[in-house]
Design a binder for these strands. Sequence first.
DNA 1: ATAAAATGTCAAGTATATATTGCATAAAGA
DNA 2: TCTTTATGCAATATATACTTGACATTTTAT
Lengths: 70, 70
Amino acid sequence: MKNLKLKVARAEHDISQDELAKRVGVTRQTIGMIEAGKFNPSLQLCIAICKALGKTLNDLFWEENSNEKI
Amino acid sequence: MKNLKLKVARAEHDISQDELAKRVGVTRQTIGMIEAGKFNPSLQLCIAICKALGKTLNDLFWEENSNEKI
DNA sequence: ATAAAATGTCAAGTATATATTGCATAAAGA
DNA sequence: TCTTTATGCAATATATACTTGACATTTTAT
């Protein structure tokens, strides 16, 4: 599924996919596909994105409905 | 670096690496290497582990010193 | 003391995240 | 209009997450 939180956080910082990609050391396509929900990024990339946007993992990558305890 | 938080959370649930691996659909070696800090799991695997242990991404995978805002 | 369970580790294979390149479209500005 | 910037999409290539199977060591239980 799409990652709107990431798109919003990026908009808050007013930076392009390309700019974010450069800051975290990947390509524009990788950021685009993460926002489009087309794949499953690595933890280290998620952490780099969070740091670049001043957010935490839960802020950007924890879905509310992932929050059910077992 | 080692992921002690995961090891502790697993201990709290009193389940083995093998049992956790089965619950999240990977092999024992994969869980072992994540705890040992030998690699970089995918986001979906991190989320599956969190759900299996009743934790969030920040609980298990967010290092305090990753928390510096840019 | 012995067996069983849990963990560490290694080598080789498979699946997939990510890179690279290129093309297309839309919006914004000169 | 023309150019630039931002984004989407797709094919191929490479790096690496993850598997499989096996053996060794440690821990726990009998």
